[in-house]
């Protein structure tokens, strides 16, 4: 097992002040279990304090640090150098910001902008079914929950949206589809019609061609394509 690797990061930079974009190479000796966020930090500390990148939890639980590495959208806080080298079979990595929204600076994409599509599908209970007994929980058995609980694990990292064969311009995106499917399947939601309308609209699941890239890239290992297919199958009425 190697202890460290000589790697090259080819990072797409963007300077909003001069509206200029270029690719900058950073060479470094990287320890095998450093994560890509650690590499960015290292670049900031040792080579170039101006490189902008974003992260928050660094636990793989918030979906802030998404970038494309050699074309694959992924969480930079979960990608170890060693794993990257063996997966991509190279020590040269092209790193780009996520393309679902315009870049603000360097690797920081405007996630706020990307989120507008999630907001459009109303990611909450629109009209709650009154609980069985006032002041108690709705009875949902573990078994009933199991059917859709996987979909609730989505952290809106937008990896799936970035990988999807359909373009972001006209598709609300796999994660927005999930967000609304959760509530269609949730027995606590009474307002199903509004949701189905969005789901089956021109920007909804008819833009999905079952390319299943969403399932492939999802860092939370959600079978996104399965949930979208449930909608196509007509399980929700």
């Amino acid at each position: 097992m190697r202890e460290s690797y000589k790697i090259t990061l080819k990072i797409r930079r963007y300077d909003p002040d001069n509206d200029r974009s270029w690719i900058q190479d950073y060479h470094m000796e990287a320890g095998r279990i450093l994560r890509f966020v650690d590499l960015f930090r290292k670049i900031n500390e040792e080579q170039d304090p101006t490189l902008a990148w974003d992260s928050s939890c660094e636990h793989g639980q918030c979906g802030t640090c998404t970038v494309k590495v050699n074309g694959k959208p992924l969480l930079a806080c979960e990608l170890l150098v060693e794993d990257a080298v063996s997966y991509f079979e190279t020590t040269i990595f092209h790193i780009e910001p996520l393309d679902v929204a315009p870049a603000i600076r360097d690797l920081v994409a405007d996630m706020e902008n990307a989120y507008e599509k999630v907001d459009q599908v109303m990611p909450y209970v629109i009209e709650p079914e009154p609980p069985f007994e006032e002041g108690n929980e709705h009875p949902i058995t573990a078994h009933e929950l199991e059917v859709y609980v996987d979909a609730t694990r989505c952290i809106n990292c937008f990896c799936c949206a970035s990988a999807c064969i359909s373009s972001h311009n006209s598709f609300l995106g796999p994660n927005a589809m999930l967000a609304t499917i959760i509530r269609v399947m949730d027995p606590r939601e009474r307002e199903k019609d509004k949701r189905l309308k969005v789901l089956y609209s021109d920007q909804g699941i008819s833009r999905c061609h079952s390319s299943m890239a969403c399932t492939f890239v999802c860092p939370k290992e959600i079978d996104v394509a399965h949930f979208i297919a449930l909608a196509k199958e007509g399980r929700f009425k």
């Binding site: 909450y124 209970v125 709650p128 609980p131 002041g135 108690n136 929980e137 709705h138 009875p139 949902i140 058995t141 573990a142 078994h143 009933e144 929950l145 609980v149 609730t152 509530r183 949730d186 606590r188 939601e189």
Partner: peptide, 16 residues
């Protein structure tokens, strides 16, 4: 209960 009634997906037991 406030959270549950607003859609938080708490883990459940077999009786719901």
């Amino acid at each position: 209960i406030w959270l549950e009634n607003r859609g938080m997906h708490f883990s459940r037991d077999h009786e719901g």
